[in-house]
Design a protein around this nucleic acid. Structure first.
Lengths: 122, 122
DNA sequence: CGGTATCCAGTAGGATACTG
DNA sequence: CAGTATCCTACTGGATACCG
């Protein structure tokens, strides 16, 4: 059986509190670029250059730092092949994939409702 | 049957592209404070002061601007009672609740995995 | 109580150039 | 190709004070 969020918070008031680990993870995953990079990778393993094109609008700097953060979090795996020219591939780890299985329904909702929401704003 | 994200993106390549409505909504909802305010409200209708305490760490300025954004998005409803002293209550709209039904499973995952992720980082 | 207004600091993040 | 390095700006967001 699944535990509701209200239950979670009641049982553990420290959760989502200022400075707690959940905030850190939230900042990484929900930041401007985190989700977008993870989403791109949920389409499958990709090389740096492809990833950069798929996450439209991201700068090299932000792609690099986002990937480093997500890799340190254990959500993304980096594989470098000792070739010339260099080839580096990024993919979701098992944990990253697990996370994305929760993120994707949310993204589908956003995709379905975004036009409505944005057009209502004035 | 539900449509996969990959299908969504294949059928509509403009989705999640730079500057498109999905990005706007994502920025509002996934921003540093957006989710946290929505989460607090998913515990039920709350007055400004209570909300401020529940979203620990938020400043008055950010609470005000976050609530305005979410209200303009139609995700949060504001009700002011003509009393002295003033009383204002915030709650999720139907659409906001719908959104949160997708966000909550994600938050449960984050709550369950945050310690693991953060402790692995070094 | 429920906000605004103002000021200010830190940093997220963009542009460009360069390298192994 | 896959990044670093450097510089610089803009906005996020905090602190404080004040108002209806």
């Amino acid at each position: 059986m699944s535990v509701s969020l209200a239950d979670l918070r009641t049982e553990n008031p420290g959760i989502f509190a200022d400075g707690c680990p959940t905030r850190t993870v939230l900042d990484h995953v929900m930041g401007k670029w985190g989700v977008l990079v993870l989403m791109a990778l949920s389409d499958g393993t990709q090389r740096w250059g492809v990833l950069r094109r798929n996450v439209s609008g991201i700068s090299e700097k932000m792609l690099a730092s986002t990937l480093k953060t997500l890799e340190a979090d254990g959500l993304v795996a980096r594989t470098a092949y000792p070739e010339v020219p260099p080839r580096v591939e990024y993919s979701l780890t098992e944990q990253g994939g697990d996370l994305m299985s929760r993120v994707i329904p949310l993204m589908e909702w956003v995709a379905a409702n975004a036009d409505d929401i944005v057009s209502r704003r004035r």
